[in-house]
Design a protein around this nucleic acid. Structure first.
Lengths: 154, 154
DNA sequence: CGGCTCAACTGGAATGATTCCAGTTTAGGG
DNA sequence: CCCTAAACTGGAATCATTCCAGTTGAGCCG
């Protein structure tokens, strides 16, 4: 049990703390993402259905949206892949994505705080956040050679 | 290698230099992206049709794919937006995207060469490239603050 | 310079992720 | 316990992109 936060906050507590109604779908979705970081909406749908029985596709999208807006989840969208959700919020960490199987790893930006985060020429834009995505090969795909093997998934 | 094609290189020369067949669709697409950096596939389709008359959707996607594979174009895919194409290839510059209208600007990474590009913990991944996306507001949207914006959140 | 061949193109249908919509259920404050 | 807004249902729609089967044309070759 990781007790990084003050005590092991239950999904229910997290929801209430964020001023959201506590519903079965939200609790299940929160738990699903907690157990499977970087889960896709589809994966969450699967987990939630396995736990609750019938849940509509829309409900899961609604829930993921609500939780993301409330700051309980963070959504990441690697180019060419469906969106994924994670529970690590607040810290602006980055991600490394496997070109072959799409697996994702977290990357803490320890190189100072924001090295790249101030563009040299911002074209008059007001910069709010900077997002770094690393692309490469995960250990599994690296070992298997470079086969386009869509059967691998963590 | 010698200097690649000079700035004044015609689309035809660029295509031949890349070992690609010279077709009307490719020439037109290359010119379209040249005149409208960060154009979407749809925008390119519009330009190409304006120039050539009837061109199929598939042809434009084929062309953009071929040109991207050949290194004549670079594709960028900001989360939540359709893919865009640009002619600045080779240098690993980055992009700033307007949250409000989706406008895109180029950002040269002058802060050293690759500050963020070496993750602190790579999880065993083989990192090939790093991609930085800045999110913010473009000058127009910043000034307006409201109006042509469906989901304003200043 | 006319033929040949395969890459390129046509047009229509399919895909996958996500959203819209109208009606029904339910959490939780009064 | 009752009410109301928020959440959920299920089906259809959207949007970018790709798949498919047949047709056209660029560029090489004799």
């Amino acid at each position: 049990m990781t007790s990084t936060a003050p005590a092991a906050a239950t999904p229910e507590d997290l929801l209430r703390g964020a001023g959201l109604r506590v519903t079965a779908a939200r609790v299940a979705a929160l738990r699903a993402v907690g157990e499977n970081q970087h889960a896709t909406a589809d994966a969450v749908l699967g987990s939630v259905r396995a736990e609750l029985g019938t849940v509509s596709v829309q409900a899961v999208y609604d829930v993921l949206h609500a939780l993301t807006d409330a700051g309980l989840l963070r959504r990441i969208e690697p180019a060419g892949h469906p969106a994924r959700y994670e529970r690590r919020t607040g810290d602006n960490h980055h991600h490394i994505v496997c070109r072959s199987c799409g697996a994702i790893g977290d990357v803490d930006c320890t190189v100072g705080h924001a090295p790249c985060l101030t563009p040299s020429d911002d074209h008059g834009f007001v910069v709010e956040t900077a997002e770094v995505t690393y692309w490469g090969l995960c250990p599994d795909c690296r070992d298997q050679g470079s086969g386009a093997d869509p059967t691998a998934q963590p």
